[in-house]
């Protein structure tokens, strides 16, 4: 079991045991085991269709049918509804970013209700992290560039007090300079003590910020290792990710 390799260390915030998930009739996850510890940045790697996004959505409760176990701060989530899970402090920044086009940037940013009294970022702090957003507050959500949308999607979940963030491919389709900015922001969030589960195709990007990696294939975890072990894993990764 991969987790044996990292036995001692802070308590796990999130633990998946034998997680299976289905979309309609198709069986996507076939028993996923992983854990994310307090203050850690864990990256899920894998090809398209390996089940990375489905893993995040299953944790959030957004799949038709799930089984197995998902514990968050020792609380079982498998039977909870999406909004209950969110209220426990789990936040998702989805791959498609899901900025509401009929809402202004400001409305988008302030839409998610506060779920915890402490740990939420103030609006000022958010604008220091994402200075572009301040200028675009009154624009329509549909009028933003891809990079701005991504920043808004991340900013939106920082305000709520959720301390566990799931970011699904935040660099997808963005220009290198924006990717760098997102990378700096994520590193900054980690420094501030957020626990982050990141899904990435781009492992060179992930290598600069992640503590540990899980590699997925066909709905299962096929390998797990710490960032320091990355150089020795390059051949395996090239094979597993097809890059």
């Amino acid at each position: 079991m991969p987790e044996a390799a990292f036995a001692q260390t802070p308590a796990a915030v999130l633990k998946l045991k034998g997680l299976q998930a289905w979309y309609n009739e198709s069986h996507i996850l076939h028993g996923v085991d992983l854990d994310v510890r307090e203050g850690e940045l864990v990256t899920l790697l894998g090809r398209n269709g390996a089940g990375k996004t489905t893993t995040l959505k299953s944790i959030m409760g957004i799949v038709g049918k799930r089984s197995g176990s998902i514990t968050f701060h020792d609380r079982e989530l498998i039977h909870l509804s999406i909004d209950r899970i969110a209220r426990l402090g789990v936040a998702l920044c989805p791959e498609e970013r899901a900025i509401f086009a009929s809402l202004s940037v400001k409305e988008n940013l302030f839409l998610p209700p506060e779920i915890a009294k402490t740990g939420a970022m103030t609006a000022d702090r958010i604008f220091t992290l994402f200075p572009n957003l301040r200028e675009r507050l009154s624009s329509g959500g549909g009028k933003l560039s891809g990079g701005e949308q991504q920043m808004l999607a991340i900013a939106r979940i920082l305000r709520t007090g959720a301390r566990f963030l799931m970011l699904d491919e935040p660099t997808e389709g963005l220009a290198p300079v924006i990717i760098q900015q997102i990378g700096r922001t994520i590193a900054e969030l980690k420094r501030e003590g957020f626990t982050i589960l990141l899904v990435e195709q781009n492992f060179r990007f992930a290598a600069t910020i992640a503590d540990r990696f899980f590699v997925m294939g066909h709905g299962r975890i096929i390998d797990a290792f710490a960032n320091s072990e990355l150089p020795g894993k390059m051949d395996m990764l090239h094979e597993a990710l097809g890059v």
Binding site: M60, I62, S81, I82, D83, A86, R87, A91, L92, P94, A98, F100, A101, S102, L103, E107, F110, L111, P112, P113, I115, I157, T160
Partner: peptide
């Protein structure tokens, strides 16, 4: 209003609004 923003957002993407902790 904020309430209206919830309504408009849920009209567009109810799942995402739920994922923010709102009982859609």
């Amino acid at each position: 209003t904020k309430l209206g923003a919830y309504l408009r957002a849920a009209t567009e993407n109810p799942t995402m609004v739920r994922a923010f902790g709102i009982n859609v």
